[in-house]
Structure formats: C-alpha cells, structure tokens
Write a protein that binds this DNA or RNA. Structure first.
Length: 650
RNA sequence: GCCGGUGUAGCUCAGCUGGUAGAGCACAUCAUUCGUAAUGAUGGGGCCGGGGGUUCGAGUCCCUUCACCGGCACCA
C-alpha cells in the first residue's frame, strides 16, 4: 500500500508504506541525500531513518536550516560527549543531557568529580569520535527489554527514566557507533555530520538528579556549539563583553561599593555609589508622591509574636535573622527577628486608629530596609544580597478597586522603567496555585481584575500557570536590558490573607466592618539589585543625572588651577557634581584616566580658556571637542542633569 | 545549603618537584607646564584569607574554617 507525501513546494508523491525520509531524499537527488540531516514530518522533527507509515507532509532539512541543524548538532554533541566520558571513565553512569540555549549539558554519576583539566581531554576524545564518522542507528524497544538492558549494563538512572515514559509508549534506543543511549531523538546520520571545531566545553558543575535537592548530586558538563566557527567566536566574545559589564567588577573599578568577609551579602556603599543610590531613591520618592503614596518607616527588629501572627515565623523562618538578646545581661528575654519584609509592619500602621472606606485606597510606601538570611550559595554581588532596600508599598483597597489600582500601578511602572532606560518590559501573569487559601469566587474576581487591568492598559501578558502566591494571583514585570537579558523587577500581588491574619478592617458605606484587600507591589524590586542591573545595562556609563561624578575640570597648565577651581565652584552652585583635576599630569593622561573611570564630561582648561572665560568640553564616547563660554556650558549641563521627572516638558 | 574551582602588594597576576616573595599598573617623592585615551627618574609597600598539622624548614604538602567565583537547589 502506498502513502502520499506532501512537499513544501506543493509537490506530492506516492511512496510505499514504510519508506524513510532518507530514501525519499535519495529519490530526489544524491546530493540532497548527502546534505540532508533531518526532516519535519507532520510538524514533528524526525530522523531521516524513521519509516513513514501514513500520508504525511515532509520538509527535508539541511545544515542551512538553523533551528533544526543547531538542535541536532547540540543534541548529537551531548551523546558524543557522554560516549567520550564513558570511554575515558567506564564507571561514569549516564543520566540526561538536553539541548539548552547555545549548547547542551550532560549529567553523569561518577565517583571522582570532573576536574577542569578533564575538559580538554574530553574535547579531544569527542573530536576522535566525530572523525570516526560512526553511524547513528535507532530502534524501538518494548520497555521491559529496555529496562532489562539498562539493569544488566548498570545504568540505574536510565531505568528510572524509562519509568517516567508513559506506560503505553515504547522506548526509543539510539546507537552512536557501539555506544548506546535512551533518547527521544532525532539525531544526525553519523557522528561525522557534527562540525568538529564549532563547539567548546565550558564548565563543570554539580546538579541534583532530577533537579531535587533531596537527590544525589551529579556531575554536569556544559558545552556550547554553533554551526560555524564565526558563531562560536561571536558567542565567546559576547561572554567576554558580559564579563566586562559585570556590576561586581564595575562596582569596584568605579569605587561604588564593596563587600567583605565580615558581612557577606551586605554592601558597603562608598561615596560615589551612595550618590547613585540617593539619586535613585530621590527620584522614586518624587514619583511615588506624584502617584498618591504616603511614605512610612517601620522597625528593623520586631518581636517574633508579630511574625507568628503574620505567618512568617512558620513559612519563612529559615530565611530570617533571629536576634535574641544576651540571656545573662538582658532584663527581658525576647526573641526578635530582623524584618525580611515590610508588610506586617505596614498593617500595624494601617491598624492604628479606625479606617473608613473613605480612606481607601491607601497607598503606603516604604523604602523598607530588609534583611534575609539567603543561602550562602545564592549570594551574587548586588543581585542577590542579605541586606537590601525595597521600593515597597502596600495598597489597602476595596475589592472593586483592584482593577483601577492595578491600572494605575502599571502606568507608573512603565513611566519609571522608561525614565530609567528600559522602554521594553513583559508582563507575566501567575494564576491560582494548587495549594491556596480563599474561595474560588474570590480568586475568580481577583484574577479577572488583574487581567482586565493589564488588558485595559493595552499590555499583553504571558501566563505563568499555577505560579501565583498562595494568597492571591500576581503580575510580574520583566524588563529587557541592553544585551537582551531579562530581569524580573516589578511585582504586583493581590493578598486576601494578611489583612485577615492581622485583622485589618475598615468601616464600609453600610456602617459594617469589612476586610480591605492588600496589594503588595514594587517596581524596582530592590535598590541594590536595580543598581546592579543599571550598571550592567549601561556598562558603567550611567545616564548623566545618575552619574556619581558628572564633570571633571582638568587643567592643562598649572596657571589654570585657580580658574579650574572657580569653574568647579560654579558647577556645584548649579547643582552639578564636579571635581577639579589640577594634578601635575599631561592632559592626555587625565583624559584617559577619567574616560576609563566613565566620567561623562571633561572640561579641559588651559591658557586659552583662562584668558577667554571658556571651557573645552569633551563628552564621553564622542569624538569632537567643543569650546563654550562657562555660563553657557553650566546652563547646558545643569539642564541635562535634571532627573527625568523634573525635566521641562516631562 | 550542595558539587567543583579560587584566595600571594591597592588592582591584575607570576612563584617548577618544600629552602625563607616577584612583575606590570597604582601609590609617594623629585624633575617636567605639557592642548584631549599612558612624561621620565627614584622610592615605599606583603601575617601568601584564618586556624591547626607534617617537616630542620611551608606561599608550596595534609586537615579544618571563612569568603569569593561557576553551577545546582533556594529566591524573586
């Protein structure tokens, strides 16, 4: 019996049932047979050697088809690497090895962990395997046979993996030469189809079996692979670029902050770093006032009874710094905790005195200094710290105000992100998790309100199914930085639970007591982390208004020293952050040094400037020089130094 | 927290199989007054992350601890 095959060019042809795509390709041309790497059959990515048993649409792929060829190259390299590892260390047990962004990884269970010196050896072995041009073969086995095979060959992880394949499905087995692996496919025709010089093993790492920290830790090797050497080089260059913008490196180079052993995860902010920090908090404070927030400040150290009432003691204790006073000397033996979050304290302020529906919505903001005991392995520069300040607020409102408050919030957030240089952001919407509190009707209303508000603003969102907080759904705001990385910063969470637990009430129009809804929200997340993101986004070249040192007045001859100091004085009076550089150095030296330290503007002053009352202006990253009268220059940069919300026309 | 790696001058790093610490930059002093990305000379600077051990002798070997880095887990 024949089957009909539909080609992408509209052509149609009949073939005997059981024909493989390899045979179809061979029938079209010998060169296509040779160049073919895989096929998309009825929308699914297949091996060439897989037989067709029914009518199908077939697209034959060659190395020119990017997603398919990259997937195959990386997937085959995962197998080739696993084979190389097992050839070098026969005791290593294979587990899983998926394709990931830019490459692949493979996890092994091996008694002796890999060392970095092993990577070149493995790479070498992989090239040997590629050069063998071993054919790739696949078969479908009944699961019992496969299980038996892996039991007898001492591969317990494969046995466990088969257990995860649905009962009614057979198991696909692949061979790269003699080496065998359980795999869904597809794969290339032979190992020689993988380019031998476009991959690189990058790193070794520990990883828990099946991603669960209760399981054994396996040894993982990461690799990257591309279709050609240029792409690999480009990728490695990109990594190098990313390293250059690492905020930890920039932070010490620019003398913004440092960390030290005695206070892991807690930043020491230096004068310049703190200037940036203050510019940002000042800006946020003005925006918040503009958007109808009141600002509060609450205690750092709070007795555990409040954390018990809020639920943190039970749910969050292992992340809290618990503080108990010295038993011998203390008159009262309390157990306190440093606050990891501000919400319970904000409810205390809300609860002070009576609230009426007329007070709602009440938008209560705090630049809340929080301390969390983060696991040591999670710490990462400013991005993950133990002490940080959130741009936090809680909006106490009635249920029917959720939508308008959400819309108002997203409006503020998009304005702030734009001001800070992130015009693009995505929204993720996380709906009800399996384990939750509150009635389904309440959830229906809360979810609908969030969606309506997002849509009313014309924002599209991505569903993050079942990822909501246990007390309510949330929106997550993800911005994209200059080199395409995503950072989740903003969040808006609907909370019905905390008002209940901490007994927040208001008197409604009907004269009865009601529960307010609480919206937890942040735009930047934490100032520490956001400054880290800013530094990486701008590669240290912060916008003028955020720059710690905005203008250096550098002298060319010492006769101009006095004039330089006068210029600095004038700049400072105009609100600019300026320093004079009257050191006994050449102007070349000064320009180089200040440029490297990313000062946005250099005013050079020499004999001419002194005589004419002018400055020679050099803007970082620009070629030309410009000479201007001092008054004009001060006016220009004073205007440029205005934060986005204070600019004329803003 | 877990796996692996790293820790030497302010910074970047060298220091072979154990024999008593070195370079460049930075810093200080002096000379130089110079026109937009490195002027020259001279000089000072180290508890080799902390603790313990082996040894006649430890930056080097062993144990332990802390921090950092790459991941995993966590978190958002």
């Amino acid at each position: 019996m024949d089957i009909a095959v539909q080609f992408p060019d509209g052509g149609r042809k009949n073939y005997p049932c059981g024909v493989t795509v390899a045979e179809i390709a061979a029938g079209i041309s010998a060169s296509l047979r040779k160049r073919a790497i895989s096929a998309t059959v009825n929308g699914q990515h297949w091996d060439l050697q897989w037989p067709l048993s029914a009518d199908a649409s077939v697209v034959i792929h060659t190395m020119k088809d990017e997603p398919q060829s990259l997937e195959l190259i990386r997937h085959d390299l995962a197998h080739i690497m696993a084979r190389a590892v097992q050839e070098i260390w026969p005791d290593a047990k294979v587990t899983i090895g998926p394709v990931i962004e830019n490459g692949w990884y493979y996890d092994f269970d091996k008694n002796e962990p890999f060392s970095p010196d092993d990577l070149p050896k493995i790479e070498q072995k992989m090239r040997e395997i590629i050069n063998m041009r071993d054919s790739v073969r696949t078969e479908t086995w009944p699961r019992e046979r496969a299980i038996e095979h892996y039991r007898s060959s001492g591969e317990p992880y494969k046995v466990e993996l088969i257990g995860m394949i649905p009962e009614d499905e057979d198991v696909r087995m692949y061979w790269h030469g003699e080496w065998q692996d359980l795999c869904r496919g597809p794969h290339l025709q032979h190992t020689g189809q993988v380019p031998a010089d476009t991959f690189k093993l990058m790193s070794i790492a520990g990883a828990y079996w099946r991603g669960d920290s209760r399981n054994k830790m396996l040894q993982r090797i990461y690799g990257v692979a591309f279709r050609n050497r240029e792409d690999l080089k480009g990728h490695l260059n990109m990594l190098e670029e990313a390293r250059k913008r690492d905020h930890r490196k920039l932070g010490s180079e620019m003398k913004l902050f440092h960390f030290q052993e005695e206070a892991p995860g807690m930043a020491f902010w230096h004068p310049d770093g703190w200037t940036v920090y203050r510019q940002l908090t000042d800006y946020m404070r003005r925006r918040q006032i503009e958007h109808g927030y009141v600002e509060v400040n609450t205690p750092q150290v709070v007795d555990r009874s409040l954390w018990i009432a809020s639920g943190h003691w039970e749910k969050y204790q292992e992340n809290m710094f618990i503080v108990s006073v010295d038993e011998e000397h203390a008159a009262e033996k309390r157990i306190n905790a440093l606050k990891p979050m501000n919400c319970p304290c904000h409810v205390q302020i809300y609860n002070f005195g009576q609230k009426s529906y007329r007070d709602l919505p009440l938008r209560m903001a705090e630049f809340g200094s929080c301390t969390r005991y983060e696991p040591s392995g999670a710490l990462h520069g400013l991005m993950r710290v133990r002490g940080f300040v959130q741009d936090d607020a809680h909006i106490f409102c009635e249920e029917d105000q959720i939508e308008s408050e959400t819309r108002e919030f997203i409006g503020m957030l998009s304005r702030v992100y734009r001001d800070l240089g992130f015009p693009e952001f995505k929204i993720k919407y996380a709906d009800r998790p399996e384990v939750r509190v509150g009635s389904d009707e309440t959830w229906d209303r809360a979810e609908q309100a969030l969606i309506d508000a997002a849509e009313a603003g014309g924002y599209s969102y991505e569903l993050n199914s079942g990822e909501g907080a246990f007390y309510g759904p949330k929106l997550e705001f993800v911005l994209t930085d200059a080199i395409g990385r995503d950072w989740q910063c903003g969040t808006l969470q609907v909370d019905f639970v905390l008002p209940e637990r901490l007994d927040a009430v208001y008197v409604g129009r009907d004269g009865n007591k009601h529960r307010p809804v609480m919206l937890h929200r942040a735009l930047l997340g934490s100032f520490e982390r956001f400054i880290g993101i800013l530094l990486e986004n701008y590669a240290g070249r912060l916008p003028f208004w955020l720059s710690p040192l905005q203008i250096v007045v550098a002298t060319i001859v010492s006769e101009a020293d006095e004039y330089a100091r006068d210029v600095v004085e004038t700049l400072r009076k105009a609100g600019l952050r300026a320093e004079a550089d009257t050191r006994n150095e050449k102007i070349n030296f000064k320009v180089r040094e200040h440029s490297l330290s990313k000062v946005p503007v250099i005013f050079a002053v020499g004999a001419k400037e002194l005589a004419n009352g002018t400055v020679s202006i050099r803007v970082l990253g620009e070629r030309g020089l410009e000479v201007a009268g001092l008054d004009e220059a001060v006016k220009r940069f004073a205007a440029e130094s205005m934060p986005p919300d204070l600019r004329k026309g803003a």
